Simulated scan of single mutants.
Amino acid sequence: MIGRLQGVLLEVQAPEILVDVQGVGYEVFVPMTTLYQLPQPGSSITLLTHFAVSENGQSLYGFYARRDRDLFRTLIKVNGVGPRLALAILSGLEATQLVSCVRENNLAALVKVPGVGKKTAERLVIELRDKLKDWEGSPSPQAGTASNSTGSSVAANAIIADAESALVALGYKPVEASKVIAAVTREHDVARSEDLIRLALKSLVPA
C-alpha cells in the first residue's frame, strides 16, 4: 500500500500528474481541489495517496488534504461508485459542498457532476447521510489569484486546450467543455489552466 509520496512534480496533464520520487516516476490522478494547489513543475511536493487495484489495472490517487482522501475512501464504498467516479465527484464539488449536498438531499447539484445520474445521486445521499453526519473540516486552501497577463496567443491557446482536455477527462462532452471554457475566457482573464478549470467547474456545478 502506498500511502504517501514526497518528491518533485515533473508534469501536469489534468487530472494526472507525474511525480519523481528518487528517480522513479509515479503517475498520480488528483482531484481538481488538489490540482488548484499544485506548485510549478520542478517544485517539491508531498501528497497523501490511495492505491487502487482493479481488474483493469492499478492506479494511484493523490490528495493534499487528509480530509479529501478520507472523503474519497468513503465515496468508493458507495455501491456503484469507483475511484474514477469518486475523483470526478471531488473535482466537481468541494468537500464541504459535497457534504452539504448529502445533508440537504440536494440531488440537483449532484447530478450535474459527469457520471452521476439520478439513481447514483440518490445512493450517495442514502449511503453517505449517516457517515457524514458528524463530518467536519475546514475549507481547502484556495488557489492563488491568476495573473492578469495572458501572455502570448500561443500560451493562451495552450491554456485553453489543457483546460478543455481536463474537463473531457473528467467526463464532460467535448462540445460542452469547449462551450463553457469559451464562456469563462470571455468573462475572466486567466493565465493558468488550473484557474480556468476551477472557474469552468464552478460554472458547471454551482455551489
Score class of each variant (00 low, 15 high):
L87H: 09
D70A: 13
V8A: 03
L10I: 13
A169S: 15
K133A: 15
I159K: 01
L170Q: 10
L204H: 10
Y26L: 11
G80I: 12
G42P: 05
V111D: 04
R198C: 03
Q142T: 06
E136Q: 15
A207V: 05
P31K: 07
L128I: 08
A161I: 02
V12C: 06
L124N: 05
D20G: 05
I17Q: 12
A182T: 15
A108Y: 04
A86G: 14
V175L: 15
L10M: 12
G92C: 00
P174K: 08
Y36I: 11
D130H: 14
L93Q: 04
R66T: 09
V12L: 09
R67V: 01
V99I: 15
P41V: 14
E11I: 01
D70Q: 13
Y64K: 05
S153N: 14
R123C: 07
A14I: 09
G80S: 08
D189M: 06
V53D: 05
L35G: 00
E194F: 02
I45E: 08
E127D: 11
R123V: 11
G62Q: 08
R192P: 00
T33Q: 00
A14Q: 01
T34H: 00
I89K: 03
P15V: 08
A163K: 05
G7D: 07
V12T: 14
P114F: 05
L167H: 04
V81F: 01
R123E: 08
A108C: 01
Q40I: 14
Y61I: 01
A207Q: 12
R198H: 13
Q22P: 04
S91N: 05
T49C: 13
Q6G: 15
E94H: 15
I126A: 13
I76W: 12
L124R: 05
V30P: 02
I17S: 11
K131I: 08
V168F: 06
G82I: 14
A52D: 15
R67M: 10
